[in-house]
Design a protein around this nucleic acid. Structure first.
Lengths: 150, 150
DNA sequence: AAATATTATTTTAAGGTTAAAATATTTAAG
DNA sequence: CTTAAATATTTTAACCTTAAAATAATATTT
């Protein structure tokens, strides 16, 4: 018995969409991770490096809200980046609760080397869709993503 | 300086789409997890229960390929479901390397109770898009997801 | 039939993830 | 000012995840 017959058309449409969202994300994610691993980084580490590289130093908390993860998580990711000497923690001068993370010279050099390569690789993968389709997909995803707040 | 100016339009379009895919997936995923947690299950546990509940007993390996995860991962998820008495491992009679996982009475009862509720909740969340938009989104996601194989 | 290769699952080590509790610091109230 | 509430980060415990190595059983080669 098909999902539609069992649960109705509306539910069937929605579930089918969620399944495809999940699959598309996971296949994409796998490709991205595979690429990033070449540089001996994990995906979360790369994302943090990317934020710091493009936007400059920022507190742990801001990194959390940007990447939609918890504080405990970010503490660990920053720990691991720090072990590699790619970022460093600096106490905020104005508020000693706050710890600002900044990219090191070593981190910046690595980031400059790899970001554009990674971006090109991701662009290549996206090219199975035309630019027009990519824009339409992005529009629908944004509508879906931003209105799920509640 | 905007991404477009820095790296060109094609790259900018693709990266923007990936960011939105990632955000949409994560916000959706968070909602799904939140709902599933009410039943004291994790998302991977729910997915396994769903496969077994809808399709019947199957080997660990088949669960892996369905959920796109590694064997070591599935071993643990099944372990945890087994601890709760929701599934059980049965050695295959034809090939003793293979371990077939089947849902227990307790697991089936739970699954029957929660699946439809969860589906309705997910349908509700999807309803920020019209059914037509959901179908278009699904179509683009499928095109994207299935052609990333290589 | 014995040695070799393949397949299915488990184990292990390293990271990622969350929620909840613990610390440390700042802000607000009384 | 002192206490209470709020904020930023870290710690802890539990689970998810992968890759790589280890086990166990089947299939293939010679």
């Amino acid at each position: 018995m098909k999902t539609t017959e069992k649960y109705g058309k509306k539910i069937s449409t929605a579930l089918s969409m969620w399944v495809k969202l999940s699959r598309a994300y996971h296949t994409f994610s796998k490709k991205a991770v595979e690429d990033i691993r070449k540089y001996n980084l994990t995906e979360p580490q790369f994302s943090v490096l990317e934020s710091l590289g493009h936007l400059g130093p920022m507190p742990i908390g801001k990194l959390c809200s940007k990447q939609l993860v918890t504080g405990g998580n970010m503490t660990l990711v920053v720990d691991n980046l720090e072990k590699e000497g790619l970022v460093k923690r600096v106490h905020s001068t104005t508020d000693r609760r706050t710890i600002v993370v900044q990219i090191t010279e070593k981190g910046k050099t690595l980031f400059d080397q790899i970001f554009i390569q990674h971006a090109k690789r991701m662009t290549e993968i996206a090219s199975v869709l035309s630019e027009k389709e990519q824009n339409e997909l992005a529009r629908l995803l944004k509508k879906l993503g931003t209105s799920i707040t509640e």
